[in-house]
Design a protein around this nucleic acid. Structure first.
Lengths: 332, 332
DNA sequence: CAGGATTTTGCAACAGGTTGCAAAAATCCG
DNA sequence: CGGATTTTTGCAACCTGTTGCAAAATCCTG
């Protein structure tokens, strides 16, 4: 049923090789045959079968896009960026939802079956070792949005989470908050501990030890229950640094529900600057991750890794910035 | 480098065929050879190459998942559901972001290159004809979340949008609203006109003609500007039926910004019931689309279409229900 | 226009599997 | 236990393209 090389070759009156070469950039074909072949291909509606060609070339243009963050609206923005950037680079994302399990080896074997050219891990909660499995299997891999100081040797792109924690601390101090807290994402997440570290270190220079709490997930609900608990156990904290915007929004609602006005009674600062943070009803002061740059750099790294598998894994750290809205009191 | 059938065959001391059969469900292999082969495969870490086998079997287990809704948080929920359901069915989603362009033929040729087994179009804004292109190319296709009374013959799963419009009208009438408006998604979207139809028809039986406005996209910003405009041009409308939750949220913020309290001064009812609609700070009264069922039915249809390409395209319409929260005044 | 250099072309082998067919092995049954 | 059945197995062809190699065609140059 589908049109093959053979069919086109027959129609154009040339050999299979000629047709193949017509569609292979840089191959040697005369203008005349090329024209004949292209005409025949057009008439028949021929599309080369990437899968078949991958057998000999070893290239599929397929890239595994793995994430386990399907409840955080921020990641829709990330997926939007990634799919566009990959399409731009002529790569095709094979999307894997890892919410249910965390077993890298299963993903690995699946992606191997499809001979993917590379893998992008877009997750702040997957452990750094996750990406390593692909690297060890010889598949170029980049871990985006996750990072920790002690990651194994794989490509990675993210903000400097320690720096983000630092920035949060500086901001809170500057606003005159003295009793502050850290409401992080899942405690096991690689990023969480870095953010906490940076936060703590800076606060320590002011002689402050933050209250510490963790939400069980990067989600509204998790933020909500964590903050409800936090307000109970640490009612004197004046401002919280939340490990993520969606957690911060949940936290905000929990605080309001318990009668604490924001920012009058309680300050909040988030992280990510997802689009929603700028909505009227949210107006969250937050630390922006430069998502477009992170994505661009990730795809760039993957391209390089594919082009030359010998490329050593690279790390890219991008700066984050404060975005002022309405959940922290003004500078005194 | 990678392990092939051949390698396993050699190690197990059998022919390639024996190995192939061991991995083909339902093929004839004795328990003894199967054991030998499995042992060898395990020792070598062999994973069959789906792409190579697809050449002869014509099956890739790849499914194109096409959407152009990457700014509507509702679709993150949809993607979550789809990726899980597809994984469950042993199918792999090849994600295509069609935000930039609407040209079906480009997607078609791309998906053909990869020999996808089927295509799922998850979009409320892509025209019904879009899915038809795949159907005509002999690729099983299901259009989910989009529908219009006059769609061409492709598989489709959605709510009955006319019914949804009807339900919205009934609800508003029941609350005593008489001056009502329709704030739809993009005017070109297939779903929009059906929703409007149902809405209008029911209102007409009460002698009411609604004010009509369209947002330019399914997004917060679009909802916001559309409502700002609507409040100007039709300030007497007491309640609006918004074609989508995220539009409704934007609309709500616009109304508040212009000093209209909700639900006291203005009623709003959305559509979808995305998770966020239930957040404290949103509390949107809305019409729920049964997303899990829509997704399940879509994947089911695709599976059937793949299993037997002769299966005629089916349509599944699922019921939608009212979810009461706080953006409509109480029943008088 | 001859002769050599260069480009283009087709053949055939190959990528990693699957499968129809016939031979070989195992099983059944009287 | 021998012959008829049934099951298992390997061979070889095939799926759709790519590519090294040598032959054929074209191009240059004197």
């Amino acid at each position: 049923m589908p049109i093959t090389l053979q069919d086109v070759a027959a129609r154009a009156g040339v050999s299979k090789s000629a047709v193949s070469r017509t569609f292979t950039p840089g191959a040697s074909v005369s203008a005349k045959t090329r024209a004949k072949v292209e005409a025949a291909a057009r008439e028949l509606g021929y599309t080369p079968n990437v899968l078949a060609s991958s057998l000999t070339t070893g290239r599929t243009a397929l890239v595994g896009l793995i994430s386990n963050n399907f409840t955080n609206p921020y990641f829709l923005e990330i997926f939007d960026l990634f799919t566009r950037a990959l399409q731009e680079a002529e790569l095709r994302p094979l999307l894997i939802n890892l919410s249910a399990e965390e077993d890298a080896s299963r993903s690995l074997s699946m992606l191997r079956q499809y001979n993917v050219d590379g893998v992008i891990v877009a997750s702040s909660t997957l452990p750094p070792e996750f990406a390593k499995v692909f690297h060890d299997a010889g598949i170029p891999v980049v871990h985006a949005f996750g990072w920790s100081s002690d990651t194994p040797e794989t490509g990675r792109v993210s903000i400097d989470n320690t720096e983000a924690g630092h920035l949060a601390a500086v901001t809170l101090i500057e606003r005159g908050y003295r009793q502050v807290g850290f409401l992080g994402g899942p405690q096991s997440a690689a990023t969480t501990s870095d953010r906490l570290d940076g936060f703590r270190v800076e606060l320590a220079t002011h002689g402050i030890a933050p209250e510490i709490q963790f939400a069980t997930a990067y989600s509204y609900d998790a933020g909500r229950v964590a903050m409800a608990r936090a307000l109970e156990s640490a009612p004197t904290v004046e401002a919280w640094f939340c490990g993520d915007d969606v957690i911060a929004i949940g936290a905000m609602d929990a605080a309001r529900a318990l009668g604490r006005a924001i920012p009058q009674d309680l300050g909040l600062i988030g992280l990510n600057d997802m689009r929603m943070a700028g909505w009227d009803r949210v107006g969250l002061t937050t630390i922006r991750q430069p998502a477009p740059q992170i994505v661009a750099a990730s795809v760039d790294l993957i391209r390089k890794g594919i082009a030359d598998p010998a490329t050593p894994p690279q790390r890219v750290l991008l700066p984050c910035t404060l975005v002022e809205r309405g959940t922290l009191r003004a500078r005194p």
